[in-house]
Amino acid sequence: MAPKKRKDDSESEELPASEDSDSDFIDSEDEKPKKKAAPKKKAAAAPKKSPAAKKVKTEEGEAKPKAAAKPKPKPAGPTTGPTDNGWNFSGDSVIYKDYGCKPSAKIAGFDFDGTLCVVKSGAQFALGPNDWRLYNGKVAAKLKQYVDDGYRIVIFSNQNSIKSKLDGKAAENVRGRFDGVVGALGVPVTVVAATQKDKYRKPDTGMWAFFSEQLAGGVAPDVSSSFFVGDSIDGGDEGFAQALGLAYRTERQEFGPPDDLGAAPGAGAEAKVTVSAAVPDNAKIVGIFAQLAARLQGVGKGFESRAFKKAGDVLGSYDKPITLASLKAVGALPGVGKGSLAVIKEVLETGTTAKLTDPLPGKEDKPAAAPPAPGTNKARDEALAFM
């Protein structure tokens, strides 16, 4: 009897299912017990970059950090200034004030110093807020007539003594002079003053543009029915008017000759001004020099006026009597030239000088020229070249 065959492994009883029973082939590596994973170490914090490192990265091409946003500029327009009493400023080079004007397309524009008023003391520049006089007795009445005719009176004035210090002493003096003169005129006025040498200073037209955009009350000025009056000592007033196409007149064409500044209104030409002299006997000569300086300043003869004022100051501090015998020594004093010496000699010999009664050497009263067509700048260029 043949022995029974042993069951083949393939015929063995089915084993219970296990995790590996679904695979016919098992990788030997899978048979090894898996090692427990070591806990991950925390990465050390990266060191802070030094400024030098940042710079290197930037040079290698990394994007630069965004710069802090710049503050937005303030919108253009009037900004309340540092004063009360109605005065305002725009930026750091324009001061302005309106004294109750009504909008009008017709503008009667005026310069200030040498046109509506003059320096009462005879100095080259005003010594304080009260150092002014109206140009002559016709000014107030003439401006009132313009207001009655529907014009708006606007003063456009260069006031470079203020510069950017709009709340400084010089600005206070200038504002005081404007307030005083406008009060004496007795009519509604708008004042615009340029305080620095920039686009607002005449003959540039920035003040007119500022007025038109900010202060005209929504009524655009009509150039064809407007005009400007100025003294044109340096060509700035005439250049300003011609650049805008405004009709232009000098102060003498508008108001006539100025009142004599060496005397109070209605007094004679030789009325004395207040002076001081180290030697009392020299006071008369010093006073005459002060009168001459004042008269010349009033008609725009600034150079001659300054020469007489300087000589008068020197003579006032001279500590010896001025006589015909001492003329050589007096002529050697700084600031006393041949012209001044001739006046001194005349006063010593006659008690006065013909220069006090001679016609004032002002500008000729030529008829006002017709305004150029708007946009024509030839005359303005000539004025600037002259300056």
Results as ranks from 00 to 15, higher is better:
D313I: 14
G109V: 08
V286Q: 00
P73K: 14
E251I: 01
Y200A: 05
R249V: 04
K5G: 04
G316E: 12
G137Q: 13
V343N: 09
G206C: 07
P51C: 00
E254L: 00
A277S: 13
A43F: 09
T353R: 04
T357N: 11
V336I: 15
G183N: 04
A43W: 10
V189Y: 08
D113W: 10
E60H: 15
K142D: 07
D204K: 14
K5E: 14
A68D: 13
A216P: 06
D148K: 11
Q214N: 13
R380T: 08
K202F: 09
G81A: 03
P334R: 10
K355P: 05
R295K: 15
L315Y: 13
V147T: 15
S232I: 00
A126K: 04
E11C: 02
A332H: 11
L215H: 07
Q291P: 01
P51Y: 05
R201M: 10
P103V: 04
A278C: 06
E31M: 15
V314C: 12
K169G: 02
V181H: 02
Q124Y: 12
A123H: 15
V273W: 06
F255C: 01
G236E: 00
K4S: 07
Y96Q: 09
K272M: 03
K199V: 07
G86L: 09
M207R: 05
L244N: 00
G206A: 05
Y200M: 13
P367Y: 03
S18D: 12
D381L: 13
N85D: 15
R6I: 14
S18E: 11
A68Y: 02
E254W: 02
K197R: 14
I153M: 01
E251P: 00
V219R: 07
D381P: 06
G268S: 10
R252S: 11
F156A: 00
P33V: 14
Q124V: 12
R249G: 01
Q124M: 14
A194C: 09
K66F: 07
N85M: 10
A2M: 05
Y99N: 11
P75I: 04
